[in-house]
Design a protein around this nucleic acid. Structure first.
Lengths: 343, 343
DNA sequence: GTGAAAGCGCTAACAA
DNA sequence: TTGTTAGCGCTTTCAC
């Protein structure tokens, strides 16, 4: 199967390739006589001509593609975000290279490097752990980029994040409404902005509500995984303060908490109430039902896509950042905690 | 940030660009004097030279990239497959373009077209509904490709599929062992090879076991979704034969069955036993626990990647297809069904 | 073993 | 408004 080239179109239309090029590009079409333009476009259609993106890219250093850097596609948090990004970018003509970094900075910088060679025009980073120097280098070279689920203080880079602090307040308030007064926190890794933000908001929420907020009531998990959540829950049960409720930094940690509680014969929510965060796909199927804070996954991706499009359109544009609203999704029994459980 | 070009390397090493090119490509390195080659390589390293893949691609029509075509990344079946493919291809130097088609053939052919323009060297199709003409055209142009979760009779195209028939036998045998004799099937769309294969195997298994196998015991779902499963289960309850167990074509259909049963106040497994298929991520968290047939997701992807690498390496190679073993994952109570439930 | 020359397909100055 | 020219960065015949 032979693919028509611009030269063939030009020859058949009796014009120079440059003229054909102009006629077939929206931005330059006005430079060419309307009649000839129409003729060229007709010939192009007849020959089934489509421009060779590789040749174009070599010439223009553009590529109509972007890099989408995520930790791990098999983490259910990310597929909806990826879809959101793509659903916005594809109609605008952009394709995405998706890379999994497994949260390794060396993988990340290698990937970014390789993508830049491929002339990607911008990046969406959904990786929490972005090597700061890399970020700054990219910012310095004014590479269009948007951060997802992560904001940065140092550089002025657009980001899209859920309103984590508000979510924590909702979750804590919910537990208080149920009658809980002794709430602990399974905090995510503190080198991720999500982990740190949620942990700080938790502390603040307890303080604002005049609840006990001993630092022993917070366990720092090393990763965002179910296993880490189970270990953390175990640690809190062993050496934390007495408590009747747990706010987990994300849903996977909450699942780990479930495991650890079950292993010790404790039931949810009868013995301990657990609240998660993110409302990842399928979490609505778990048992016991998990109340969690819903972040708008697809919309986060879509907004990141839109911010990137703005930047692609006008790289000098002042960066905007977005904080998207979250909501509490209450699942399972909502009967208040019994007085007897208060330590 | 300036990126070193081959010409700069050549100049600094005092050779012609062509020589530098030879020295820096494994296949042609032997053509050049060992000493000069070493010198050139040293200079290349100093300058941080990496070949421009776009220029190379324009010249060679290769790209070190492949297309990975899937229905929908947010279906939990696919992320592990994608990871499997990438984990094999990336170390071999290949990058993947991932495209979601949402099972629309027009989207699919447009995507394939656009990827071919980008000089992708091969394809992995994890889409069930592949437009046959497209498939044949690709085969005719001897484009390297591998099908996942789908085989084809017409063309001789390599595929990687789980052993669906064996899985169905395991599932049916399990139900029989529990004492069931009246088993119905929620079949997936019959225009997908998975849907048809599992349905036929179900029928065959009942026949082999001398169980009643009226065609009214099979409901054909229009999609692989939870909603379709719920509707199908409802239909079977309304107008199907009496039954005590259901084999669902996949886990999402099984979840739908759960919903429909719960809505009518029927309990699992006390009133009806449900068995799923695929063992998608997180399905182990649902309640009631779902027994299902585990297919090796990541391995399916990885094997597809390996087959594709073989083809990329030697396009004339005779196509191999793989049938990967499955296993039954029993969850929840395994007590036999009570006599009283036999209709 | 190395260099010269050409060209992959396209676009962007510049000239006419 | 159109054509000419040059070149993006690389590889690959063909000479030497």
């Amino acid at each position: 199967m032979h693919r028509a080239t611009l030269r063939e179109v030009a020859e058949k239309a009796g014009v120079h390739p440059a003229t054909a090029s102009r006629a077939l590009n929206a931005a330059t079409e006005s430079m060419v006589n309307a009649g000839t333009a129409a003729r060229i476009q007709k010939v192009a259609k007849e020959l089934g001509y489509t421009p060779n993106p590789i040749a174009r890219s070599l010439k223009t250093s553009r590529s109509m593609s972007i890099g989408l850097v995520i930790p791990d596609l098999t983490n259910p948090l990310f597929p909806p975000i990826v879809r959101g990004v793509e659903d916005v970018l594809r109609p605008a003509g952009y394709n995405a290279w998706i890379v999994n970094t497994d949260s390794q900075t060396d993988v990340e910088s290698a990937a970014v490097d390789s993508l830049r060679q491929r002339n990607v025009e911008g990046f969406v980073f959904a990786t929490a752990l972005l090597e700061q120097p890399l970020l700054e280098e990219l910012a310095a070279s004014s590479v269009p980029m948007v951060l997802v689920n992560r904001s940065t203080a140092s550089a002025d880079i657009p980001s899209v994040t859920p309103d984590d602090a508000a979510g924590v307040v909702l979750a804590v308030q919910h537990l208080i409404d149920l009658g809980h007064r002794h709430i602990v926190h399974l905090a995510g890794p503190q080198d991720t902005s999500t982990g740190a933000t949620r942990r700080k908001a938790f502390r603040q929420a307890l303080e604002d509500q005049d609840l006990p907020h001993d630092s022993s009531g917070i366990h720092y998990c090393e990763t965002w995984s179910e296993e880490a959540g189970a270990r953390g829950m175990g640690a809190l049960l062993d050496s934390g303060p007495p408590f009747t409720a747990v706010l987990a930094g994300n849903d996977q940690l909450a699942l780990g908490a479930y495991d650890a509680l079950a292993e010790r014969g404790l039931r949810c929510p009868d013995d301990v109430s657990v609240v998660g965060f993110n409302d990842i796909p399928f979490i609505d199927k778990v048992s016991p039902p998990l109340t969690t804070v819903r972040i708008p996954h697809v919309e986060i991706g879509a907004e990141a896509g839109r911010l990137l499009l703005e930047l692609l359109d006008d790289p000098t544009r002042h960066p905007r950042s977005l904080l998207l609203p979250v909501k509490l999704v209450v699942r399972g029994s909502t009967s208040p905690v019994s007085e007897a459980r208060m330590p």
